[in-house]
Amino acid sequence: ELVLALYDYQEKSPREVTMKKGDILTLLNSTNKDWWKVEVNDRQGFVPASYVKKLD
Rank of each mutant, 00 (worst) to 15 (best):
V52L: 15
D8I: 01
V17F: 14
T18E: 04
S30T: 10
T26R: 15
V3Q: 02
A5E: 01
R15G: 14
S30L: 04
N29I: 08
R15I: 13
I24G: 01
V38G: 01
V3P: 00
K37H: 11
E39N: 08
T26F: 12
K12G: 09
D42N: 14
M19A: 02
P14S: 13
A49V: 06
R15E: 12
E16I: 04
K12C: 12
K37L: 15
M19W: 01
M19S: 01
T18M: 04
V40P: 00
L55Q: 06
Q44H: 09
L28N: 03
V52D: 02
K33W: 08
L28D: 01
L28W: 05
A5P: 01
G45E: 01
Q10W: 13
S50Y: 09
A49R: 10
Q44E: 10
V38D: 00
V17I: 14
K53P: 02
N41S: 11
P14Q: 10
Y51D: 04
K37R: 10
S13W: 06
A5L: 02
K12D: 05
P14W: 10
W35L: 03
R43W: 05
P14L: 09
A5Y: 01
E1F: 12
D23C: 07
L25E: 00
R15A: 13
I24E: 03
T26K: 15
E11Y: 05
P14I: 10
K12R: 14
R43M: 07
D42H: 13
L55R: 03
V17P: 01
E39D: 07
T18S: 15
G45I: 05
R43Q: 08
L55C: 12
P48E: 03
V3G: 14
K54T: 09
P48I: 02
A5I: 03
W36N: 01
N32Q: 09
K12E: 08
V3H: 04
V3N: 01
E16M: 05
F46P: 00
R43I: 07
D56Y: 12
E1L: 12
V52N: 01
V38Q: 00
Y7K: 14
A49Y: 02
K53F: 08
Y7R: 15
W35K: 02
K37N: 07
Q44I: 14
L4I: 15
W36E: 01
T26S: 11
D42I: 06
V38S: 00
Q10Y: 15
R43N: 07
S13H: 13
S30W: 09
N29K: 06
Q10R: 10
N32Y: 08
K53G: 10
K21H: 06
V3D: 00
L55A: 05
Q44Y: 07
E16Q: 10
T31A: 12
L2Y: 14
L25S: 02
D8P: 06
N29H: 08
N29E: 15
R15C: 15
R43T: 07
L2F: 14
N41P: 11
G22F: 05
K54F: 12
L2T: 09
V17R: 02
V17W: 05
Y51E: 04
V47K: 00
L27G: 01
K33T: 11
K37S: 07
E11N: 07
D42C: 14
R43E: 05
D56H: 14
D8Y: 04
Q10P: 06
T26Q: 13
L28Y: 04
D42A: 11
Y51I: 08
V17Y: 03
D42S: 13
